[in-house]
Amino acid sequence: MGNKSRSSLLYPSHVTTAFKEESNRRLLRLPSPTRGACQLTQKLYELGARKIVVFDVAAPGCLPAMTNRIAFSSVCEERVNQLVNEYNRLLPQLVEDLKCRLPGTVSILGRVSNSFQNIYQNPSKFGFKYTNIPCCVVDDHGTTPCVPNKTPCQDRNQHIFYDAIHTSEAANAIIANQCFSQSSVCSPINIQQLAAVQGR
Rank of each mutant, 00 (worst) to 15 (best):
S113G: 00
D155V: 13
G104W: 13
V137S: 06
I165T: 14
H141Y: 14
H159K: 05
G142Q: 10
G142P: 09
P145Q: 06
T143N: 05
L90V: 08
D139Q: 14
K150Y: 07
Q121S: 14
Q158R: 15
N118T: 10
L90F: 08
V138D: 01
I108T: 13
T167R: 04
F116M: 11
P134Q: 08
V112T: 11
Q93H: 03
L109V: 08
T131Q: 11
E96N: 11
I133Q: 13
Y130N: 11
P123W: 04
F116S: 00
V137K: 12
P152K: 04
K150D: 02
N88M: 06
P152W: 07
D139G: 14
G104M: 14
I165C: 02
H159F: 15
L83Y: 09
Q121R: 15
P152H: 08
V137N: 06
L109C: 08
E96W: 07
L90Y: 06
K125S: 06
Q158S: 12
E86A: 12
N88Y: 08
L98Y: 12
N118G: 02
N149M: 12
G142C: 11
F128E: 00
L83A: 14
P148W: 05
Y162T: 13
T151H: 09
P134A: 06
P134D: 03
I133H: 07
H159W: 07
V112H: 03
F116P: 01
N122K: 05
P134V: 03
S107H: 00
T105Q: 04
G104S: 12
V138K: 02
G110Y: 03
I160L: 11
V84Y: 09
F126M: 02
P148S: 02
S115N: 03
A164P: 10
T151R: 14
N118R: 11
N88F: 03
H166M: 09
S113I: 00
S107R: 03
T131I: 15
D97L: 15
V106C: 12
L90T: 07
R89S: 11
A164G: 11
K150G: 02
D155Q: 14
R79F: 06
D163N: 15
R156P: 01
Y120W: 05
R156V: 05
S124G: 03
H166S: 09
C153K: 04
P92T: 12
T131A: 10
L109T: 06
Y120A: 06
H141I: 10
L102P: 03
S113Q: 09
G127Y: 01
T105K: 05
C100D: 09
D139L: 12
R79V: 05
P145N: 07
S113E: 10
S107F: 04
H141Q: 13
T105G: 04
I160F: 06
H159V: 08
L91D: 10
V147D: 01
I119G: 01
G142V: 07
C135F: 08
Q121C: 01
V95I: 13
C135S: 10
Q93I: 00
I119M: 04
L90E: 11
P92S: 09
N88I: 05
F116G: 00
